[in-house]
Design a protein around this nucleic acid. Structure first.
Lengths: 175, 175
DNA sequence: TACCCCTAGTTGAGCCCTCAATCATCTTCG
DNA sequence: CGAAGATGATTGAGGGCTCAACTAGGGGTA
């Protein structure tokens, strides 16, 4: 058997679903990103950071926890928080018990920025997503999303683990 | 009545659906983007351009048509095609009947790059999306996606039209 | 103590995207 | 014809993201 014929291509229906899904998601993302950027002067990723911080006890979180809560890489979060600190929305403080660590505090200005941004964003989400769906579709979308999330979440850990093994094993395979 | 109380916030269920959806979509995008970048050395946006071009009659398309087929801005497409031309995947040619216009041709190298990239990408889509869903969920996702797409597609045109009107009308509203 | 490895976080380069401005050309209409 | 405006496409600046390298501090072991 050869490689190409081993590939299982998408059926017509799968292809149609994939293209519609892709189009819908791209348009939705672009729409919400533009709304937030235009009306609140922040990218959606920063909005999510503000939301997570605002819900944390004391409105403080370790950088690592903030990264995993926003499903973001440390690097990305670090860049983002640096910029948000320059905007006065977040303040960084080093951890006394582990001097490698850092806390990210939501400032009053950051909370205010979030409160300014939220109504417009929520309305945009409602108008572009929920208003397009029946209640049943909304419920279905929740189930489908959870299934995709649960399928993908372990993969990230797996990928890391495999990478580890590969590095540790070196090359043992001969033929 | 005041502004804030006029905001209709999301219900608990809406909020849960939105967060799951958001997480699922972000993870899926990141996963597919990384797979394509790692295994084929191209971003997903470029892959889509190659797909659309490969399906066009003669494997040629006007820049504008390519832009609208990929739901991309002219600017973005222009940058992308410039880079893809440097990779030898696309060749640009000016239109003889309208000298403002340009054609984008898929080259043999571009087609080869697409054919190399496709199996891995398709398998990633299958593994991370379709394998997570039952056949019924897949069908539902298609319907939901189409609904969102149809809801958003006219909005783009509307937004432009409103922008036009706003510019033409000037400010007539006094209060 | 010295060594080694692991973890927390930052940094810089390079790439892609958006926005606004620009260029060149077509079109319309007086 | 000629000026004004619309259209097709490009450009450059600025910002966010990823990847890989790096800094710095913790934790175990001999």
């Amino acid at each position: 058997m050869d490689l190409m014929s081993g590939t299982s291509w998408l059926s017509d229906e799968e292809q149609r679903v994939w293209r519609d899904f892709s189009a819908a998601v791209n348009m939705l993302r672009a729409h919400l990103e533009a709304q937030l950027q235009r009306d609140a002067g922040m990218p959606h990723a920063y909005y999510e950071i503000l939301v997570v911080l605002s819900e944390a006890p004391g409105r403080v979180l370790r950088m690592s926890e903030l990264a995993s809560a926003t499903r973001s890489s440390r690097s990305r979060l670090s860049h983002a928080v640096a910029r948000m600190e320059a905007s006065g929305w977040v303040r960084r403080e080093s951890c006394p018990t582990d001097r490698r660590g850092a806390f990210a505090h939501l400032t009053a200005a950051g909370l205010a920025a979030l409160e300014d941004a939220a109504p417009g964003h929520v309305e945009a989400v409602r108008a572009s997503l929920f208003d397009a769906l029946t209640p049943e579709q909304m419920r279905r979308l929740g189930e489908i999303s959870a299934a995709i999330r649960d399928r993908l979440a372990p993969r990230c850990a797996e990928a890391e683990a495999e990478e580890m093994e590969r590095l540790e094993d070196g090359e043992r395979a001969g033929g």
